[in-house]
Design a protein around this nucleic acid. Structure first.
Lengths: 283, 283
DNA sequence: TGTTATGTTCCATAAAATGAAATATGTGTA
DNA sequence: TACACATATTTCATTTTATGGAACATAACA
């Protein structure tokens, strides 16, 4: 049975253990999150997975050298291979590091919270996020997801797609009304996206959450369509739509920096953004 | 269609893939071992696994939030969940017990606060920390982070990188001036790193915080570059740079002990540090 | 010694992984 | 525009693996 209804996991941090491989990894995460050795029994209890199954999973992990058993054979802990993996991973996360640095600099410059987002499935995924120092701010974790039709990032990425592609994607996405401003029909959305496309940026004018204004532009790519955005957001009290538009040049600079990070190797990064100097902006 | 490439993976990366779960993890390792995004094709080639299979595996990993696809959907990289896992793992690994013990012994020996640190993204992460008994001391929690360019650990790890990798990482890291001594230009930093590399240790001479002196050396690894440091720190009033250098041998012993803990299994631990007996030290 | 908590094996069944081949999608070129 | 080529995705019959209830084994404890 193909599953026509995509799961909107929203912000639930439940690990979707849809397949044995991911279950195995989840078990690994559980073991790795302890600072002490753990018994089969406790793992079975904590995960709710039957003991024989956990037993076999642990056996598999041990064969792989990912976990080890203490001398008495009854307690499990993380293995060398796993720790080496973790170290290598962090060591090579230089892209993430640079990305984060760009975001941080942008936030310090603008004084408002900024995000790097990506399209994942039919939702917008927060890749990274740096918060403003202002006491009044909205709280969204890096790694969480928001709907595509009522977020600035979502609209930018949709506007970058072909009409066919977009409609295919939106087919199973309910255009849920989250605030009074949320766009809830395909026709209206198509209209809005035309504006977005011609402007080169998208505004979320309290369409996702009342009182929250957001602006996003696409991070250019060397080839193909963009799948990432950089966005700024703030309470409507502090940032009007006009204020947001005024930040555009700085966002563009950041987007370009992100582009250069993505295309790291290429010594010379041709500016692929059309970037007309002064596009006529319609709001 | 002549197939010039024999199916044996050239890379010797062959881990006993006795089961799908481990194969999945091996794929994850391969992706995590790159400092750039990779295509399905290249993964299929490198692993020798047929494309449709790799495709499904990647799909699984993406569903689990372990990897993400960038821009044009054709390149894969490590996801948020995976990096969080790596950090948690290093912070909580089951050998923290022994690790902590080594640190504790070192602190008792030296009489000053010592840390174990790791690189995560573009920051230095405090993995563990034991405080001196002295009443005058600086307060930094285990789990907190400091900038890479003005910490002894950061400089050691940067010195261990290739020039290209380092510059990629530093390109977007603002070299913020935190004290009068902070190095704030790439040129000066490059110079300093040469010294660090030749010395085999790094000094933070009140570059991060006024009045705080710190020295760090890398914890050796069996394979690849080091991602961890052991460091000692103290108020400048109590420890001059010369004092710090005098502690070098004891730090080296501790680093070696940590190395042995990390590689617990391997009966014989070859000393991978060059460790020339008396390197000419430039300060 | 008996009792309990925990670890391990068995096995019929359900679920998942597999990869060759076909199809689709994009990318570069005439 | 069309065409060739590379890469990505879907399909599907088949093999392989995972699953968990129940039985069995072993260590821990009183």
């Amino acid at each position: 049975m193909a599953d026509p209804t995509p799961h909107l996991t929203a912000d639930s941090k439940d690990t979707e253990d849809s397949t044995p491989g991911l279950r195995l990894f989840a078990l690994l995460e559980l073991i790795g999150s302890k600072d002490h050795f753990v018994s089969l029994q406790s793992l079975a209890e904590e995960t709710g997975i039957p003991k024989p199954t956990v037993f076999r999973m642990l056996q598999t992990l041990e064969n792989g050298g990912l976990i080890i058993r203490q001398s008495d054979k009854r307690q499990y802990g993380t293995g060398t291979r796993l720790r080496r993996f973790a170290e290598t991973l962090l060591l090579n996360a230089t892209q993430v590091g640079s990305r984060h640095a760009v975001l941080q600099a942008l936030v310090e410059d603008l004084g408002e919270t900024c995000n790097i987002t990506a399209l994942s499935g039919n939702e917008i995924l927060y890749l990274d996020r740096v918060e403003t120092q202002e006491p009044l701010r909205f709280n969204l974790q890096s790694g969480s997801r928001v709907p595509i039709h009522c977020s600035a990032s979502g609209k930018v990425l949709l506007a970058n797609m072909s009409r066919a592609q977009r409609h295919k994607l939106l087919r199973y996405v309910p255009l849920k009304q989250l605030t009074a401003n949320t766009i809830t029909t395909l026709e209206e959305l198509d209209e809005e996206l035309k504006v977005v496309q011609s402007n080169g940026f998208a505004i979320d004018n309290e369409e996702f959450m009342s009182g929250l204004v957001c602006m996003a532009i696409a991070v250019p790519t060397a080839h193909g369509r963009s799948n990432q955005c950089v966005a700024v957001q703030a309470p409507a009290l502090r940032m009007t739509v006009e204020d947001a538009v005024a930040l555009l040049p700085k966002l563009r600079d950041a987007a370009h920096a992100l582009f250069e990070i993505e295309t790291e190797g290429s010594a010379f990064a041709p500016r692929t953004t059309p970037t007309p100097d002064s596009p006529q902006i319609r709001i």
